[in-house]
Computed example of a mutant assay.
Amino acid sequence: MSKSLNVSNEDILYQIKISAQFPGLVEAIACRKIITDTAEKVGIKLELEELQQAADNLRLTNKLLKAEDTWAWLEKHHLSLDEFEALAYTNQLSNKLATHLFAEQVEPFFYEHQLDYAGAVTYEVILDDEDLALELFCALKENEISFQEIARQYIEEPEIRRAGGYRGIQRRQDFRPEIAAAVFAATPPQILKPIITPKGVHIILVEEIIEAKLNEQLRVKILADLFAVWLKQQIAELEIVTQLNCDRTQVALP
């Protein structure tokens, strides 16, 4: 026989508080209010076609390919159809406001920070012993051993070991500063002299440096980053007053 459990609004609010999620929740509410208020002030409105596209994107993001998938997802998240549309509306309004505020700033920002968006294809082995790292580095320079052989011997994680220490394409901010400086000064293909960090002694093969290009994917990322910074600035300037009742939370923004 199945058992039932009643969860009240008080229970939900209490759990949010004791799990230290309350500040994040309040900030999310503040963001939504800032977006809707600012969009209204600058005269941004959504057409029916835009709202439909936003709803389609939301379903696609959550892999809701069938009607029954959508209804199951709504039930899981305790959302009505109107609330689903409200979520899609807020998402699209946010995108449209970001474009309105920062679309013209994306290209200048990219060229000002172009070096930060360059990529590097690297392979890496991290050791605990500096002397061993120097010995292996010298052996690599003399072609006495291959990087793949070192990876097979000294990398513990199976997936990374099988990939020969491959770290994929990483941007400058993905590396520690001391490693980034060496990686992006390299002339690929190049083995870097061992670099010591708190994680250990790094032996790095720089296979390729990829110059930054302002494609659509990067344009969207920069736009989102600029908008996120703006939102944080807006929140920092607010005095957020929370009023807690037994069954609901109200956030009042001046």
Rank of each mutant, 00 (worst) to 15 (best):
I160R: 15
F175E: 03
Q170R: 11
V125N: 08
A118C: 13
V121S: 02
R171N: 08
E107Q: 09
E112R: 15
Y123D: 01
F102W: 13
F102K: 11
R171V: 06
E142Y: 07
E159Q: 15
E107P: 01
C138A: 14
P177R: 05
E144V: 07
C138T: 12
F109I: 02
L140R: 02
V106Q: 06
C138D: 15
A120W: 00
R162E: 14
A120D: 02
A118V: 12
I169H: 02
E124A: 12
E130N: 08
A120M: 03
S146E: 05
A118H: 10
E159N: 14
A103D: 15
E142D: 15
Q148N: 14
N143T: 02
G165T: 06
Y154H: 13
L132F: 04
F147N: 04
R176C: 00
R172S: 03
Q153P: 01
G164E: 02
E142T: 11
T122S: 03
E124I: 04
Y166S: 03
D129P: 06
A118N: 11
G165F: 06
R167N: 07
F109R: 14
G165S: 05
A182K: 15
F110E: 11
I150V: 12
A186K: 01
I150H: 06
R176V: 04
Q114C: 06
E124R: 15
R172W: 04
P108A: 03
V121R: 05
H113L: 06
A118R: 12
H113K: 13
R152F: 10
F184N: 02
L115V: 13
T187V: 14
Q153M: 10
L134H: 13
E135D: 14
E104N: 11
E112D: 12
G165D: 04
R152I: 02
Q170K: 08
I169S: 00
V125C: 05
G164A: 07
A180T: 03
E104R: 10
E159M: 15
F109L: 09
I155G: 08
F110G: 08
E149R: 08
P158G: 03
L134K: 12
C138E: 14
F184I: 09
F137S: 08
L134T: 12
P177H: 07
V121C: 07
Y123S: 04
R172P: 00
Y166H: 11
E135W: 02
F110K: 10
F175C: 04
F147C: 10
L134V: 07
V106E: 03
R167Q: 10
P177L: 06
I126N: 03
Q173E: 10
A139G: 11
Y123W: 07
D116K: 08
I169D: 00
L127D: 04
G168L: 02
R152L: 14
F102H: 15
H113M: 06
V106I: 11
E178A: 09
Y117N: 08
D116A: 12
I145K: 09
E130W: 11
Y123N: 03
Y117Q: 08
F110L: 11
D174S: 07
H113R: 12
A163V: 06
L101T: 07
E157S: 09
E112W: 14
A181K: 14
I169M: 10
A151E: 00
I145V: 15
Y117L: 12
A182S: 13
I169P: 00
T122G: 01
